[in-house]
Simulated scan of single mutants.
Amino acid sequence: MNIKICGIRRNKDLLTCENAGADLIGFINIERSKRLVKTQKIKDLTSSMKDQEKAVLVIEPENMEDAQEKIEKTGLMKVQLHSLLAEDIIKLKMHYQTKNEPNKCIDPVKKYKSDLTVIRVIGLPKKINFQKIREIQDFTRVCDGLLFDSEIEGKTGGTGRQIPLETATEAAKIAKKCNPDLKLFLAGGMNKNRIENELKTLDNFFDFVDVNSGVEDEPGVKNMAKINDLMEIKVI
């Protein structure tokens, strides 16, 4: 099971995550978040990383231009989006299309090479309806990964609310049916106890678990012991 630890704001927490072996590390640049980090601070933090490929920029851009500006300012090429429509994601990926690839019309259903990795967040209700199925299918075709999080009043991220396992696995099946190569993440109040208790199912349906508040003393302040304890799951 791969582990992404999100909401990093301090150098000491970043170092702990790296030393503990976190597979991905998230930096949140969303104004409404209690774990907000400004773009310059993110650049300062990630510049010291041993492996910057593990860094994920978490944003909620108003439009494609806003997304591009944040990507350029931080220099991070893995981005987790809490907004943008599928057609905007296509345009964003085309902007960062691999330089040696021919400049041609891109069919969004087919894979193409881009220097930008896009993970789109999809909020899940307790039960999945037809509209949510269509949403999952639409983003599956244009993204490199989907992150399922709990949704409250149309907003995702920072809720601390867990998604029922049955709902999460149903969403994962829908996504994988459309694109078997898609990377799937599960967030929403994830902690060591839940991951351990549901490890077999999670490992069967998801590539990553996304942990934030589950390793914190308070928003944006990580607990070294909780991080190290969590990472023991990787060697079970």
Rank of each mutant, 00 (worst) to 15 (best):
T74H: 01
R9L: 08
M77W: 05
D115K: 09
V235S: 00
K126D: 12
I195G: 00
G157M: 07
D210C: 15
Q80G: 13
K54G: 04
K12H: 07
E101L: 15
N193A: 07
L45F: 13
K4A: 01
R141L: 13
V142M: 02
E153Q: 14
E60I: 15
Y96I: 13
N29A: 09
K155Q: 12
V209L: 08
L14F: 09
K54R: 12
E69A: 04
K50E: 07
R10C: 05
S33H: 10
F208P: 03
P164K: 02
K132F: 12
P125Y: 03
R10V: 12
K12G: 02
V58F: 04
L116Y: 06
D138F: 07
D217K: 14
I236T: 11
G160C: 08
E166M: 15
E31R: 10
T46H: 03
D181L: 09
S213W: 14
M231K: 03
S114R: 04
A67N: 02
D217G: 14
K173E: 05
G188P: 13
Y112Q: 07
H95R: 07
D88S: 10
P164L: 10
A55Q: 03
V118Q: 00
D23L: 15
Q52E: 03
D44M: 13
L45K: 05
E65G: 08
I128R: 05
E218L: 15
K91I: 08
T159W: 13
L45T: 08
T16V: 15
N129I: 15
F130H: 09
A171W: 06
A225W: 13
S33R: 04
V109A: 02
C105P: 14
D13Y: 05
I89L: 02
I59P: 06
I71S: 02
E65N: 11
V56S: 00
D229A: 11
L92T: 06
G21P: 13
T156E: 03
K41A: 06
A20I: 14
L116V: 11
D115C: 10
T169G: 00
S213D: 00
A187Y: 04
P180S: 01
I28H: 05
I227V: 15
L147F: 11
Y96C: 09
N204Y: 08
V79Q: 00
V121K: 00
S114N: 09
G26K: 04
K38M: 09
N63C: 14
D23A: 05
V235D: 01
Y96T: 06
D138M: 12
E72G: 05
C178Q: 05
K173S: 08
L57G: 03
A55C: 13
K110L: 14
M224K: 12
E232Q: 12
P219F: 12
L84A: 04
L76F: 10
M64N: 02
N212C: 15
G123L: 11
T98G: 02
F130K: 09
L199F: 14
V79L: 02
A175W: 10
M231T: 09
E31L: 15
K50M: 12
A171K: 05
E62M: 10
E18A: 08
E18M: 14
T156F: 06
I163R: 00
D210H: 09
K93E: 02
T201E: 03
S213E: 02
E31F: 15
G158Q: 01
L182C: 03
L36Q: 04
D210E: 01
E65W: 13
I89G: 01
G154L: 14
G220E: 05
T16L: 08
A86F: 08
I71E: 00
